[in-house]
């Protein structure tokens, strides 16, 4: 494309809002991991019939 410098990404890094969105994505992903761990613990106790809450 005339006038376009090669190797430059047109999308800028990043407004503070984009940064915040990035932080929120990471936080949500971490919370999903924790939720899966909690679910695993509950199911495991049920399967092993240990009956813990």
């Amino acid at each position: 494309m005339p006038g376009k410098r090669p190797g430059r990404d047109p999308r800028p890094v990043a407004s503070p809002v984009d940064g915040l969105r990035g932080v929120v994505s990471v936080a949500l992903a971490a919370l999903v991991v924790v939720a899966i761990a909690v679910l695993t613990a509950v199911l495991l106790l049920w399967v092993l019939d240990l009956g813990g809450g």
């Binding site: 909690v38 613990a41 509950v42 809450g53």
Partner: peptide, 12 residues
């Protein structure tokens, strides 16, 4: 650990 809370807070 025999409670889900204990398993997650200690183990996980």
């Amino acid at each position: 650990q025999t409670t889900s809370t204990g398993l997650v807070r200690k183990g996980f």
